[in-house]
């Protein structure tokens, strides 16, 4: 039982890299580099989710966080300047205070968190356990995440799809897809 769990070294390494990338993003003025580092940050979080066995979440994080949002940020960056404006020092301090208080609150809460993988934790005991035990009999597919997402909570997923559709509709209505104008006319 007292054997050292070497995989936690991987967790620490990933956490350290996330911290380093986060600090680098805050300190960078070049927006292009910042966008790229945010992609790196997403990919590192995806790797960390994999070590936590949350493969579906990792998949989404890698595809959306590192893939699509990086491209969208780059596209948005083409419309604006390449360098960030310097920010007044007083605003840095205000932000630092907010982050410190929120971080301290989170660390205070860590003591009340259930142990990782605890079968008696609230997330694992009630409805979560019910889904895991009944999926093989009721849905008969191996991936419980898909069963919960598409069948047990199909109504929620329908709502999410409508939300995504509404978001796309809003963008299409506000910005338009094919505005007829040839691009670069304004400039």
């Amino acid at each position: 039982m007292t054997e050292f769990d070497w995989t936690q070294l991987l967790d620490y390494a990933l956490m350290g890299m996330l911290l380093a990338v986060g600090i680098a993003i805050v300190r960078l003025r070049n927006l292009f580099a910042a966008v790229m580092l945010m992609g790196v940050y997403s990919l590192l979080s995806a790797a960390w989710f994999v070590t936590l066995d949350a493969v579906d979440v990792a998949f989404t994080e890698a595809a959306v966080g590192a893939g699509i949002s990086t491209v969208l940020m780059l596209a948005a960056m083409l419309l604006t300047a390449r360098e960030a404006e310097p920010v007044k020092a007083i605003r840095h301090w205000a932000a630092l205070i907010v982050v410190s208080v929120a971080g301290a609150a989170l660390f205070y809460a860590v003591g009340d968190m259930p142990v990782y993988g605890d079968p008696n934790s609230p997330a694992n005991s009630y409805v979560g356990m019910a889904y895991i035990t009944s999926t093989p009999n009721e849905i008969a597919i191996p991936n419980v995440v898909t069963a919960v997402l598409a069948s047990y909570r199909g109504f929620d997923t329908f709502g999410e799809t409508v939300v995504i559709f509404a978001a796309g509709l809003g963008v299409m209505l506000l910005l338009g897809l094919n505005s007829g104008k040839k691009k670069g006319d304004e400039e």
Partner: peptide, 21 residues
């Protein structure tokens, strides 16, 4: 879900990227 997510991602990309040279 695939159809909607794919199309909305494409719509957002077209809407933003179409505005930049």
């Amino acid at each position: 879900v695939l159809s909607t997510v794919f199309s909305v991602m494409m719509a957002i990309f077209y809407a933003f990227a179409g505005r930049a040279p």
